Each structure stands twice: as C-alpha cells, then as structure tokens.
Amino acid sequence: MIAAIALPGILRIGGGAFAETRAVLESLGLSRPLIVTDPMMVKFGLAERLQGLLGGAAVFSDTVPEPDTDAVDRARAAVLAGDYDCLVALGGGSPIDTAKAVAVLAKQGGRMRDYKAPAQNSGPALPVIGIPTTAGTGSEATRFTVITDSETHEKMLCIGQSFLPVAAIVDYELTLSKPPRLTADTGVDALTHAIEAYVSRRANPFSDGFALNAMRAIAGHLRRAYRDGQDRAAREAMMLGATQAGIAFSNASVALVHGMSRPIGAHFHVPHGLSNAMLLPAVTAYSAPAAERRYADCARAMGLAGSDRDDAFAVAALLDELRALNRDLAVPGPRAYGIEEAAWFRLLPLMAQQAIASGSPANNPMVPDEAAIQALYQQVWAE
C-alpha cells in the first residue's frame, strides 16, 4: 500500500515558539494576516500579544465552540471585507477549524456542505497558520475540518489538502492556564486520535510511529496535567502528543468513536473531546475483537502491559485503563451531563445515520451497521 502523506510545510514546536510567529510568516512571504480567534483569547490578552508580534494585525474573534456554518459565514464576510493574504488561527480546535473552512470558502466559494465527506478538496485556499492553545484536536497539523450545518444540525467532516495549514506553531506554554475540565476533554480527544489512527483500516507505517509516540506521551502525562495545570513537563508532553496524534490521524484516519461523537456534539452541544471520552471505552470493547494485536500494541505503548503478556491480557488492561481514566478525569455519561433521555433515544436513528454518512465508521476494525451503532449509543447511555 502506498501512503499519501501530508504535513504542514513548517512546524515550530517547543516552549517560546509563539514568539516566532512573525518570522514564520515572513519566511512564507506573507505580510497581511487576519487573526482568527475566540472571545476567550481576547479576554485573556493572548490575541493582543499576537497582534503585537504581527505589527497590529486585524482580529476576528467571533468564532464559537463546535463551529457551525453561521459562524463560518460571519468569518468569511470578515475575510472578504479585507485585503488579507493569510489567516493566523489562534485557539483550540474551533478557531482553527473555522479558519481552515473560511480559507477554502474565500477562494473557492460555495457552501460548507459542498465540501463534506466523501468529497475531497485540493483546490486553492488562503494560507493558514495554526497556533493551538489546547493539547487536543491536532487541527494545526491535519487536512480535516469539522463544521456543523446550522440548518440540518449535521456535523460535517470536510477533507482534503486544501484544509491543511501551511504552518503550525506548537508552544506548550500557551496551555499552562487551561482549567482541568478543558485539559481532560482535549487530552482524551488526543488519545482517541492516536488510538483510532493506529487501529484504522487506513493505518500505515508512517502514521503508526506518530500514533504510538502520541500514546506514550499522553498516557504518562494526562492525569498529571489534569491535577496540576502548571506542571510544565506534563504540559509539554501533552502538547507534543496532541500534535503527533493529529499528524497520525490526518495521514490514516479516525474511526467509529469520532463517527459516533460528531452527532452527539451537533445535537446536544457536548464538547467534542468530552463526547469522545463518553464513547471510547464502549467502542473500544466493541472493536477490539477485530484487531486484538493492534489494540494490544496500544496497551503496550501506554505502559499497561509488558511484552511478556499476551494480547488478550493487554487488551483487557487497555479497557480497564480507559474506564479508569474516565473516572479519574470525572467524565460524565450522557445522562449525568444533562441530556434528556427521551431526546437521546428519539435521535438514535438519525445519529446512527449521520455517523455512517461521515465515513469514519468504515475505517473501524469492526465495521458497524446502523443497528450496531444504535446499540452502542444505548449501551453508553446505560453506563
């Protein structure tokens, strides 16, 4: 199998990398950036710091969590109203995904639903420089963006080289102020990226290396970062692991957890990392019989089983750890989160259809039909 590998052209990784943003733009011949961010980055002064580094660049800060097409359209209007030659996306996955979507729409036009999977786009786009402030989505290094259709409430996966940032600036110091809940949710998101990339039917030797390294980094440091946000070693490991996981799944794929997670986020406004965490133990238990060796490798990379233990032991240890991690990180189930039971069960058929339509479940070791997905949603509710 030939693996088609795609990476940002420039990666700056490490404490203090944020200060090199202007130099990165200059190396790319870019001089008229629009900063795309969210209100929290403005409130805490990080957007202003970036403005200072970039000589007073304009700021668009009207992005929203779990971005939808209405928010993307507002950002597109701001981009088209100015003379910008690039977008600098500052924040978590939501501002970065918004910037990636707008970068394509600004050059190619149309609506986001025109770009949803299984379509793949390699057409023109404004250059995007991704600066993550959470250790989770890896969006700064992926050729994906996820946008919810405001009319249909479908969370659309959009794929292609057009959505890949030209540069990523990965500075763990930007995560030191993040609260425990956000640390937990984004951290499990990154772990899910790594596991799904490794067990995906589209995994390859290139993505495998990044996935396994990401699992090693995240497993050893997520609880530490959750307990003490100022633990610099833990924050640095989590940030590197999140970017490695992003590279892994961008060059392999995600699978069933993500396919089932997106409808939960779209219909019930659950943060993406949290909905992944709700699903990860049950979906892993469902999928493991179809890829026991691969899931056992995940357990060994996470330090849960030695090479002297057989695959069955390692998989059991992995399942125990995923459940324990959710307990330690205080991950609520759908019921505890406050989702109404009647609404959950009423939407099961639609959520299962939308999960299948996203394409991600087809990459899973155990490929489910809609009935199997509905049964998993029921199981997650009961747990």
Rank of each mutant, 00 (worst) to 15 (best):
L280F: 03
E340M: 11
W381Q: 01
T134S: 15
A78H: 09
A362Q: 13
E292D: 15
A89Q: 01
D328L: 04
A23S: 04
A103V: 05
T192S: 13
E20V: 05
A288I: 10
R223S: 06
S275M: 10
S253F: 08
V380C: 12
A197E: 09
T192H: 10
P165A: 05
P165T: 15
V199H: 13
F249R: 07
M1L: 09
Q161T: 11
N276F: 02
H267V: 01
G246K: 06
P95I: 02
R223A: 08
G56K: 13
D369K: 08
G306R: 12
S253L: 03
R143P: 09
A324I: 03
V199M: 14
M112W: 00
V188D: 06
P361V: 06
Q244A: 09
Q374G: 12
C86N: 08
V170L: 09
G91R: 00
L105F: 03
W344P: 05
N364I: 05
A255I: 03
A78K: 14
L105C: 10
E196H: 11
E154F: 05
S207Y: 04
L34G: 12
A184W: 01
R346S: 09
D369Q: 07
A168H: 04
A301H: 08
D85V: 00
E140N: 07
A324G: 12
S27I: 05
S31Y: 07
P332W: 01
Y295R: 08
N121C: 12
D231P: 00
V367F: 04
F44E: 13
N363T: 14
R32Q: 15
R216F: 02
M40Y: 09
